[in-house]
């Protein structure tokens, strides 16, 4: 075996090992261990262990629960999965699609006071694409939410 072909064999072997590793990750790892976000029910079911651990939490913004302080850039709302509801507190302007009733995923920690402190707020869009109904303007909700500050 020439040195060149041995080197190539090592490289090809390495490539195959990497590919197998990814295959394992894909079929073994993600399915079993990697849950992208917890629901409020699942987080609360953890009891004491839920506190102060970094976690992703997903659910729907409960209609009528959004409180936005434009000066402090402080956003509070309730996140629900239909069964359990948690108070979420987040700082900074939310993404443009944020509105009551939409799905969101927040990253942060659940605190003992019963408030989920979010460091990152992500809006989950549904698979529906529609122009606004007559009389409704796109992003009206967002504009109302943020007031003059953005326009």
């Amino acid at each position: 075996m020439t040195p060149g072909s041995r080197r190539r064999l090592v490289l090809a072997g390495g490539a195959i090992v990497v590919l197998c590793g990814f295959g394992f990750l894909l079929y073994g790892g993600i399915g079993e261990n990697l849950v992208y976000f917890l629901t409020p029910s699942e987080l609360l079911a953890r009891g004491e262990r839920a506190y102060d651990t970094p976690v992703r939490l997903g659910g729907q913004v409960l209609p009528g629960s959004v409180r936005w302080d434009a000066e402090a850039l402080d956003l509070r709302f309730r996140l629900t999965d239909g069964t359990q509801t948690l108070v979420v507190r987040s700082t900074g302007a939310p993404p443009q699609m944020f509105r009551e009733g939409i799905g969101v995923v927040v990253e942060g920690r659940y605190r003992e006071g019963g408030v989920f402190e979010s460091t990152n707020l992500m809006v989950k869009h549904s698979n529906e694409y529609r122009p606004p109904a007559p009389g409704e303007r796109p992003q009206d909700l967002y504009r109302t939410l943020l007031g003059e500050e953005r326009s």
């Binding site: 993600i30 992208y36 993404p95 443009q96 990152n120 992500m122």
Partner: peptide, 18 residues
Amino acid sequence: PTWGVWWTWDPRLTTTAI
């Protein structure tokens, strides 16, 4: 501009990266 992040390790994005 829509979700609020450039990237997140959600299963769709992760499997596509793989």
